[in-house]
Design a protein around this nucleic acid. Structure first.
Lengths: 184, 184
DNA sequence: ACATTATGTACGTTATATTGTACAGATGAA
DNA sequence: TTCATCTGTACAATATAACGTACATAATGT
């Protein structure tokens, strides 16, 4: 998940050292206490937006240079690293492979639903869409009061800004891929 | 100067209303209390970076959509609106016309120095440069232990990451324009 | 009309961001 | 070495962000 305050910590320390400034010098330039600068660099504090503003302006750097962390060209996410979310007494399991991140407009999940497993989802934000492909078993999606039953290999796309539900209507484990898109 | 928390206040309120969400709904989606969301929208609070992160992620919006405020195509800055900075007992007056702002890599000032007025400046950050043009009177700049005397219409550029000083070496008021550049 | 729900604000409490001072280790000069 | 300065951290005090509850008003239905 990459804690945001750790990102800032690393960025600030890198920038400060690249400018060869001491904590005290940064404190002078920014009007933020030496102690606070140190704590931020160590990730011990989640600074307020005004503090970040003072730092950015005092150091004459952009806001994003503190917030952005360079995205690696390649990123591998192992199943074991993913902390699944459990619903319906563990019968419905969500694996967030690529959760929402700053500018990215979509998320990638996979879902496992045991036999009989069911989940009713509240509407997402207006304009949101879901793209589902079934990889194993059978899935029944209900949206707009219409049920759609899919088999392995089938897909469905629907506007997810209304109530919808997922149901393993088959006799075996259902596994599927889900992409959620959010409008800009 | 546009207080940063007021910018966020406006952005958040606009985004929330465009999505037709109540404070409570936003609280649910983001994990930030309804009260805090309200205070942020009213500009009564400078949220911490983690709170902003929660809001951005919960609402599936980018960080910058909360921070950025649309720059007008045209901006007029009247001399009367500028709050000058006084040095050397008011003999050295700095007028910040376009102070540092997020991505902009330079600042534009004008300076008035009365007869005999003098200012010794500490080094700016490494790589900083100053571009000065004299509009009225005489100016003596000292940098690298060398003095340069300029008349109205003359200009000078120098690396400002070392000590330097300005001196009105003439008999009349000196007025000049100063651009300070900061490396990326 | 009334009741009911929904929405945003005021208030008191807790958690924590922020500050100033004091301290310990490092660095450097003589 | 010794003294001095510089750098970053530990600590205690204060300011304020963040929370939960309760309240006022608006909106909605019956």
């Amino acid at each position: 998940m990459e804690e945001i305050n750790l990102i800032i910590a690393k960025n600030l320390k890198t920038i400060r050292e690249s400018k060869k400034l001491s904590l005290e010098k940064v404190a002078e330039l920014t009007g933020v206490s030496k102690t606070m600068i140190g704590q931020i660099e160590r990730g011990e504090s989640s600074p307020t937006i005004t503090t970040i503003w003072k730092i950015a302006n005092g150091l004459k750097i952009s806001f994003t240079s503190l917030i952005n962390h360079p995205q690696p060209d390649t990123k591998v996410v192992l199943r074991n690293e993913i902390q699944p979310l459990f619903e319906d007494n563990g019968k419905y399991r969500v694996y967030p492979h690529f959760p929402f991140e700053n500018d990215r407009r979509f998320e990638v999940y996979s879902v496992e639903i045991e036999k009989g497993g069911y989940l009713s989802s509240d509407p997402h934000v207006e304009g949101a869409e879901e793209y589902i492909t079934v990889f194993e078993g059978e899935l029944t999606v209900r949206v707009n009061n219409i049920e759609h039953t899919l088999q392995s290999g089938d897909s469905i796309k629907f506007k997810a800004d209304r109530p919808h539900s997922y149901h393993n209507s088959g006799d075996t484990l259902t596994r599927l891929s889900m992409v959620i898109y959010y409008p800009a």
